[in-house]
Design a protein around this nucleic acid. Sequence first.
DNA 1: TTACGTCTTGAATGGCATTCAAGACAAGCA
DNA 2: TGCTTGTCTTGAATGCCATTCAAGACGTAA
Lengths: 204, 204
Amino acid sequence: MNAIQDVILASPLYTGQVSLNENIYSMAKNKRHVDKEQKAEEIELAAMELFIDVGFDDSSMAMIARSANVAPNTLYWYFKNKDDLLIAVLNRLVNASMKLYPSMMTKPLTEQTLWLLHQFKQTKGLISTVHTRVEHSPSIATWHDNFHRMIEMLLTAQLTINGIQKDKIPFVASALTFVVEGLLSHEHTEHEEQEMINWVLRTQ
Amino acid sequence: MNAIQDVILASPLYTGQVSLNENIYSMAKNKRHVDKEQKAEEIELAAMELFIDVGFDDSSMAMIARSANVAPNTLYWYFKNKDDLLIAVLNRLVNASMKLYPSMMTKPLTEQTLWLLHQFKQTKGLISTVHTRVEHSPSIATWHDNFHRMIEMLLTAQLTINGIQKDKIPFVASALTFVVEGLLSHEHTEHEEQEMINWVLRTQ
DNA sequence: TTACGTCTTGAATGGCATTCAAGACAAGCA
DNA sequence: TGCTTGTCTTGAATGCCATTCAAGACGTAA
């Protein structure tokens, strides 16, 4: 239906894992890499559960390791540090939502936005975590940039389809993003959320 | 001119320090409390500078103590923990801005909002810090609640003066808040900021 | 059997917020 | 004057934390 969506959904960041081993060429001897990706996945799933349940700061590497049945320092063979593990988890979460998104694409934009809001609600805490760590970790910073670039493209495409006045689109897209982020960090009733999004999307 | 503002500006949270020693009655013997408030102020100022310059997470209690010329554990005689020190600093910052606010009250709302945005820009990092720590610390959570209550009252008053349609006011107030928070966590040009705020405030 | 990458781990290391116990200091009273 | 009592201050723990190091186990390929 529209090409932009396909581009987004096919972008390397969101097609699932960005391959952990880029050196497939030089990899010749002693490859056991099948297990490696499996184990990495186990670790990511353990981390994901903890990050969602108790938050990033309160999930120690030791807890994650225990939950994945490995020694704490084993995590560092698979991930450079805790921030890199966070990125893997974030990609997994975004990817999961984006896999479901196509089925929402034809629905009204208000409904789509509300759906996105609910998708990210389980990961509420991780949003401020990302914002906090953007200043520490360059890799989190670029992840954050890419994420917002993707959201902006997605919304721009949808707002265009919905016939929003062209020169207003950047504002509406930013406002929608900020309002969703705001609704994620501050408690509101379902009804308020809906009214809020409707208000942003009201055609002038 | 309008009573609501006065109420806000006189509210205990924002009239400067909430007195550190509530037990003035029982305090009789051995009082040296004059120095105490002075020393507390020195610590708060040292903490404020560090929180703004290097952020909350990267300001260790040891650094703050060194900067205030005391031993690290001395901080715990004045503040229950690092979160309580953060609250003292936040109150100081909000108080400083609110002292300046009355001179902006008569200006157009767009200008007021832009001014608020710039006031809080120096404390950018502390916003996500607060959002992160809301889940850990009940005292940060209530501070955050009170802060938003105050902002909501302030904006509601101003939007009423500006003749915004009554039933739309809650949405505009929330949207303005979220957009300011968004602009604080995501880099934008001055021009984009202005356009963004104008867009939210456009009368329908 | 040897050699060499892949993977795992126990045991550091250095940092952190916070607590503890001991004492210094000042004021009020005898 | 000395004694007591509360106000402050601090060196030295404590128990976490993320991360690193060095040693070795395990599989594969020659």
